[in-house]
C-alpha cells in the first residue's frame, strides 16, 4: 500500500511531537538534578536535610559494596510479587464464589464496603501482633489493601455479563460451570486485566507500608532506618530506589496488559 504525501507528513509530525515530549522530559529531569546538586553544594539548601544527587549516588554505592543494597531490593520485590499474585488469585477465586452465591454476596457486601473504606494502616499494629513481626505481616498488610479492590473489580466485571448471552447459553442447556467457563470469565477478561494495574499500585502501597511498620530488610526499611538515624542520604536513596522500582514494575504490568489485550 502506498502512503500519500499528507499521510507521511502526518506521521512525521507525530514522530516530531513524540521526540519533543521525550526530550523535554529528559531536560526536566537533568535540570532538576543539576539544580538540586547546585543548590546543595552552594549551601542554598541544607544538604544535611535535603541530601543531593551526588550524596545519593555515593550512599547507593556504599550500600551496594557492602552487599545490603541488593538484599533490600530483592526483599521488597519478592514481597511485592507474592502479595500481587496472592491478591489477584484470591480476588479472582472469591469473586467467582460471590458470583455463584448471590445470597452470600448480599450478606458480605456491607462488610466489604466497610473494610474497603477503612484506612488499612490502622490495622497495622494488630497485624504485627497476630502475624508476628516478620515478612508474613507485610504480606498480610499488602493483601488487606490489594485484595478487596481486586475482588470488587473482578466481581463487578462478572456482574456485567450480558443477560442475552446468558440466555443464549441456557437455551443450549448450559449449567453454571459451563456459563462461567464459556461466558462469565472470558467476558470479564478486560476487567480482570485492568485490575492487574490497580492491584500492583495497591500492592506497592501495602508492601512499603508493611515495611515501615515491621521489617529488617527492604526499601521501606531503608527509608525508616535512615529517618531514625537521621541520615537523609539513606532516606533519599530509598525513595529514589522506590521510584525506579515502581516505575519498572508498573511498566512491566502495563506491558503485560497490552500484550494480553492484543491477543483479543
Amino acid at each position: 500500500m502506498s502512503i500519500s504525501n499528507n499521510q507521511q507528513l502526518f506521521l512525521k509530525k507525530l514522530k516530531k511531537e513524540r521526540l519533543i515530549v521525550f526530550f523535554t522530559q529528559v531536560i526536566i529531569i537533568i535540570g532538576f538534578l543539576f539544580l538540586w546538586e547546585f543548590c546543595a553544594s552552594k549551601k542554598i539548601i541544607n544538604p544535611f536535610i535535603f541530601s543531593s544527587p551526588s550524596r545519593i549516588i555515593k550512599t547507593l554505592k556504599t550500600l551496594f559494596v557492602d552487599g545490603s543494597l541488593l538484599t533490600h531490593i530483592f526483599t521488597t520485590i519478592s514481597e511485592i510479587l507474592i502479595a500481587f499474585f496472592l491478591g489477584i488469585s484470591l480476588g479472582f477465586i472469591l469473586a467467582v464464589v460471590l458470583y455463584e452465591f448471590p445470597l452470600l454476596a448480599k450478606v458480605v457486601e456491607p462488610f466489604l464496603t466497610m473494610l474497603n473504606s477503612l484506612p488499612k494502616v490502622a490495622l497495622g499494629p494488630i497485624i504485627i501482633i497476630w502475624a508476628g513481626a516478620n515478612t508474613k505481616a507485610i504480606i498480610v498488610m499488602a493483601l488487606l489493601i490489594n485484595l478487596i479492590v481486586s475482588l470488587l473489580t473482578i466481581y463487578n466485571g462478572f456482574l456485567g455479563t450480558d443477560i442475552i448471552k446468558i440466555n443464549l447459553l441456557k437455551s443450549f442447556g448450559a449449567n453454571k460451570k459451563v456459563l462461567l467457563k464459556y461466558l462469565v470469565i472470558p467476558q470479564a477478561k478486560r476487567t480482570i486485566i485492568s485490575s492487574l494495574k490497580l492491584n500492583i499500585s495497591m500492592t506497592l502501597i501495602g508492601v512499603i507500608m508493611g515495611e515501615f511498620l515491621v521489617s529488617k530488610k527492604g526499601i521501606g526499611y531503608l527509608i525508616i532506618y535512615g529517618t531514625q538515624v537521621f541520615n537523609l542520604n539513606i532516606v533519599m536513596s530509598g525513595i529514589v530506589l522506590l521510584i525506579i522500582l515502581s516505575f519498572l514494575i508498573y511498566g512491566c504490568v502495563s506491558f503485560v496488559e497490552k500484550q494480553l489485550l492484543k491477543s483479543n
Partner: peptide, 10 residues
C-alpha cells in the same frame, strides 16, 4: 435466536 446476534467478541 435472540434480540441481538449475541456473538462472543473473543
Amino acid at each position: 435466536m435472540l434480540q441481538n446476534d449475541a456473538l462472543f467478541p473473543w
